[in-house]
Design a protein around this nucleic acid. Structure first.
Length: 111
DNA sequence: CTAGTGACTGTTT
DNA sequence: AAAACAGCCACTA
């Protein structure tokens, strides 16, 4: 455990704040979240931050997908990815074959 | 301090 | 079209 385990870095908080703004039925890419958080090209950090996220949080982490419009796997049995897909479908997102969604249709466009 | 790793992405082979 | 490369940086050991 980190010595400051209960106090995530500001970078993470910033990422979480942006993720929390993604509306239901829409999705955002890691790079997009990074850019909106004021750190373009830090897409990997977004993924790392989400991975570090504790289970049971209220964040819509399932609305974050990669630039290909697909769910990134974690090296698990793919169950986490399946759960994410299930959540998105429940919000009305349509998955075409090979677990791909249309970013042109579902990507979040903030004002 | 160094080295390895990773829910990524755009560019170049 | 598919694979490799490069960049970016927090976190762990």
């Amino acid at each position: 455990m980190r010595s400051d385990m209960g106090i995530p870095s500001e970078t993470y908080q910033l990422i979480y704040a942006v993720v929390a703004q993604v509306p239901k039925g829409k999705v955002a890419t890691y790079g997009q979240i990074a850019r909106m958080a004021g750190m373009p090209r830090h897409a990997r950090l977004v993924g790392y931050a989400l991975h570090a996220l504790a289970v049971g949080n209220r964040l819509p982490w399932h609305r974050i997908v990669n630039a290909k419009g697909q769910i990134s796997e974690r090296g698990d049995a793919g169950e986490a990815a399946a759960a994410q897909r299930r959540r998105l479908v429940r919000e009305g997102v349509i998955f075409s074959t090979h677990n791909t969604i249309s970013l042109l249709r579902y990507q979040w466009h903030p004002e």
